[in-house]
């Protein structure tokens, strides 16, 4: 059975804009991978079409069938993690092995408070 994993240092899952994320990735594959890379990305989810932004990728050279590597990736200044009724913007670290699009994802939060920003409807005036 194939297994891909992402661990951040101290198990952190909430980061400030501009902060450095450090951690390790590991994988155990049944079939060899030509490439294994870690992606830092944001994506939207909700009522409308999805937008995705891949902010940075960390390739791991000469991936073995079973391997463990360290990574460092810097969080950009934005966008922040937020959620409302119509749309959420989510951040994730994603480890992808190709071919086969074998992947694992770790959701993270990016904001100045390290909390997801909640968008609430403005109460009616008067």
């Amino acid at each position: 059975m194939e297994n891909l994993g992402i661990e951040t240092q101290y198990g952190a899952n909430a980061f400030l804009p501009g902060e450095m994320v450090e951690g390790t990735v590991s994988w155990q594959l049944d079939l060899p991978a030509e490439t294994v890379e870690l992606r830092l990305l944001w994506y939207t989810q909700g009522k409308g079409d999805q937008d995705i932004g891949v902010v940075s990728t960390v390739p791991f050279a000469n991936p073995g069938l079973a391997d463990r590597r360290a990574f460092r990736v810097r969080i950009p200044e934005g966008p922040y993690s937020f959620s409302g009724k119509l749309i959420s913007l989510l951040w994730a670290l994603e480890l992808v092995a190709e071919p086969g699009s074998r992947a694992s994802r770790l959701e993270i939060t990016v904001s100045p408070t390290r909390q997801e920003i909640l968008i609430t409807p403005r109460p009616p005036v008067g």
């Binding site: 240092q9 952190a12 899952n13 909430a14 009724k85 939060t109 909390q115 997801e116």
Partner: peptide, 22 residues
């Protein structure tokens, strides 16, 4: 889409996992 709107009007069920900062 109408089902989406119906669900959107429900109270929030859960929040994201508690943030674990560095």
């Amino acid at each position: 889409r109408e089902m989406y709107d119906t669900c959107a009007d429900r109270p929030a069920l859960r929040s994201l996992a508690s943030p674990q900062p560095l």
